[in-house]
Amino acid sequence: MSTDDNKVKPEGAAAVMYAARLAEGDFQIQRCRRCETAFFYPRELCPACGSGEVEWFAPSGRGQVYATTTVRRRAEAGGDYNVALIDLEEGPRLMSRVEGIEPQAVAIGMAVRARVAVSDGQGLLLFDAQETEKGSAQ
């Protein structure tokens, strides 16, 4: 029988748990129990203090565009698309795509809201542009 130090979780590591939840449309991120830092991407240790005591929680889904680019692509191949860095309300930054407006119209500071697109058993985290900061309720 394994010692405690050698035991792995039956559900797998944080990255696998994140992907499994996302595939069910559930977007959750981690927070350190020791220093309370919320972080993304999912990992085994808190990157702020090194603690292994981390917990999952559902963020509000609200965020703001931190940086943005339009990747140019031929129309036949699907046309231009957005790549953005989003700062979540809870602090962590992540890469995603802002949808609902033209890629060129995505602007730094714009309010966005998270949405999980599920297809072929995989979840993809996307963000929708919000008309105003307060408009995120719609």
Binding site: A19, Y41, T69, V71, V83, L94, M95, R97
Partner: peptide, 14 residues
């Protein structure tokens, strides 16, 4: 890089 690649940034340029 499962948290970046799905968004198809043209790396490293993007």
């Amino acid at each position: 890089q499962p948290y970046e690649h799905p968004y198809q940034p043209m790396m490293p340029l993007s």
